[in-house]
Design a protein around this nucleic acid. Sequence first.
DNA 1: ACCTCCAATATGAGCGGTCGTCTCCGTACC
DNA 2: GGTACGGAGACGACCGCTCATATTGGAGGT
Lengths: 185, 185
Amino acid sequence: MREQIVDAAFEQFHRHGYNACGVKLITDSAGVPKGSFYNHFESKEALALVIMDRYGETRHLDVLRTPKTAPLTRLRHHFEALAQDIADVGYERGCVFGNFSTEAADHIPAIRAGVQAAFGHWAEAIAATLREAQQDRSLASTQDADTLARFLLNAWEGAIVGERAAKDGASFAAFFTIAFETVLR
Amino acid sequence: MREQIVDAAFEQFHRHGYNACGVKLITDSAGVPKGSFYNHFESKEALALVIMDRYGETRHLDVLRTPKTAPLTRLRHHFEALAQDIADVGYERGCVFGNFSTEAADHIPAIRAGVQAAFGHWAEAIAATLREAQQDRSLASTQDADTLARFLLNAWEGAIVGERAAKDGASFAAFFTIAFETVLR
DNA sequence: ACCTCCAATATGAGCGGTCGTCTCCGTACC
DNA sequence: GGTACGGAGACGACCGCTCATATTGGAGGT
């Protein structure tokens, strides 16, 4: 039953964000009674932290570590997988980390810490890939890998924000064009 | 009194976003009774549209049109002004457009349309500046100016998302470094 | 094999509070 | 006298959360 709640919360937090997603919405879509929620989670906030961990495991970070593929190709595949996930649902939901950062980071310290850690791990995985590319000369840029990684991650999150308003794929297309043809060369 | 409500809503929407900002919070911080709200606005949603217009006028787009300054310098001043606004309040609030896009674009069509239009005007102002720079050869990049503009705008919005979690200025710094040293050259 | 008992979980009613919105009446001004 | 606004309060719905009451399942004793 706990697993049903987590599965449903994963979907609903992803779709509606933190504030617009009530406990009742989660339990209803999980098919469990509302009263059962607090048998398994201390609070909605605590559930959100669990969901962030779970969500992090689906961010295709494994693609960045695929052996025998060129680093920049892996990076492209990484973002393509993320883009496909969002395009598949008609650009109708954002990134859980971005949602939580925008909605809750300012007034819920634990959520802010969770988002910060998630972005940190993600940026580090990208930076490691970029360092590989710099070492094998496939990336000529001498910009600091951590700075590049943070910039790319943020540019991606912003592309999601833009796509949620436009829903036409243009922001994602601009990201791939500029990131891989100009930033990463 | 209408003006008081608009001023307060400008501040509160900016700080808390759409969902976490109630009508009572707005009227309280405006110092007007809650009952007066609907004498001046059809709904909270209608107020949000007014606020988006007002907010657009404070986005320092005028800086992009300052005469006798090099186009890329104007662009840098534009983003520096935006960054200063956010740094001044301890990175404790986002961009109204980004907030609304994340929180409300999916389920409130009028808000989505407003955000889309706002991002469109903003991107066009940046693109015009970039075209100027391409024509006077201060920008060597042959990438399409509209694509570049959309990418930069989204990268900026993403930097705000990252900064709201980290609050250390690193995302803004990465934006200025990569955008002006790598993307725009 | 069977009963007893206890801890853990299931469950929905309901807590105090807030949500966006509306009603109603008093007042002010043309 | 009519229209527009000021302002108190309350509407039904929902918020996150609690609690008293069922229901369950397995351990321990005989």
